[in-house]
Write a protein that binds this DNA or RNA. Sequence first.
RNA 1: GUGCCUGUGGUUCAAUGGUAGAACUCCGCUCUGUGGCAGCGGCGACACGGGUUCGAUCCCCGUCAGGCACCCCA
Length: 433
Amino acid sequence: MPKTKKNSSFQSIKGMHDILPSEQLYWEKIRKELKETAEAYNFLRIDTPIVENSDLFQRSLGETTDIVEKQMFTFQSRGGDKLTLRPEGTAGIMRSYIQYGLSHLGQPLKLYYDGPMFRYEQPQAGRYRQFNQAGFEIIGGGDEPIYDIQVILPIFRLLENLKIKNLIIHVNTIGCKNCRPAYRKKLIEYYKNHQKDLCKDCNRRFEDNPLRLLDCSNSDCAEIRKEAPAILDDLCNNCHKHFKSFLEYMEELGLPYELDSHLVRGLDYYNRTVFEIFTSGVSEEGKSFDLALAGGGRYDYLAEMLGGRSTSATGGAIGVERIVEALKLLKINFGARPKAKVFLINIGDLARKKSLALLEDFIRAGVRASESLGKDSLNAQLRAADKEGVEIALILGQKEAFSDSVIIRDMKSGVQETVLIKKAVAEVKKRLK
RNA sequence: GUGCCUGUGGUUCAAUGGUAGAACUCCGCUCUGUGGCAGCGGCGACACGGGUUCGAUCCCCGUCAGGCACCCCA
């Protein structure tokens, strides 16, 4: 047969990765911890669609944010609606909250979720175009800082339970609609005099999003920033009290935090408390890393922005791929997948027919069993059994098939015994004890 | 979107301006009813397109993909 040369083959879309069987242990563990943590802290699960109206994100995230300007996967439906693959989880949840009047479920309402998000970005380490976030939201019930803490706590505990070390919570406040505009003005005022010394990115930020001037890493800009007004000095009374109280809770709980006056989140819907959680360290290969694992903040204006009643809210999300990345860097493993205990070997047509039914008996009895029905030789099948590391092999050959019996072979000792097929499950169970 | 680096079997790596070799994995045989070891064998690759050349996997350009950094963020 002449070989046909493939001149094209499919591969996954840029920035969208497969989670292969070899990685699934991480994901299973994370999902399990997420569910347990969320339930321990009384959060209710919510799942919202992956696709929403583009307007939902435009209005909630802000027209001039990077996400809306250039990172959304937007398309038109056959009906002509402009739709977008969700770039984050909060907007959809708030939409659902308003749509179904979820305030009736009680206030505050604590919700959690996890699922894929989409952003059209340049992929690199720990950054994908399709990625998974797990998040916690607390909606309604007032804007007390204790709710900010109640979002940070489960996120932090979840990371802790996954054995991720060196966690540090960067916190800041970005004020409210009363004090932020004044501060913004002051900031612009200050930077206007230094505009010519700023890097070109900062000149762009100056126009679009002045708060972002605060986290440029350019050394000249950093120099200028030293003298820049700090928002902490310009908070209104309420915001000041709010943040102070928030910090007191952090202290009280002994959570490792760091005041980071440059932390300003990119999305418009945030106000007051903002936070990001990092882990850092040195991998076994000697590579040092500093990973942002989670982030969030208060978003008291979002409900109104979406046409709902004014409702306080706060939340945060974890980047699941980032966690997997951290677990790999830290060489954290969670044990192996449970293996099959029994391997069923068959030789000959009659035996093969009977072995399938026998396999069913084991599955129904809750004994993990494996087989290699496609192989013919006893050797090959024993080898396969050995590779799977089973304790017991069942050999169903022609002779046995005729007498409705089967050989039970202890793989370690090599001791064998022939029993009737209908007694096989019971006999094997006895041995596995 | 920008800059730098990189694309050779499933994986990790070689070699070469005259179309490629190994290790591991996988499959088979030795062993047609008894595994692990060993020996032997098999499947399997130059990302794609164009250019230079008698001839390109190698040199050049483009595309795509990956890595890193910026931007931004999870």
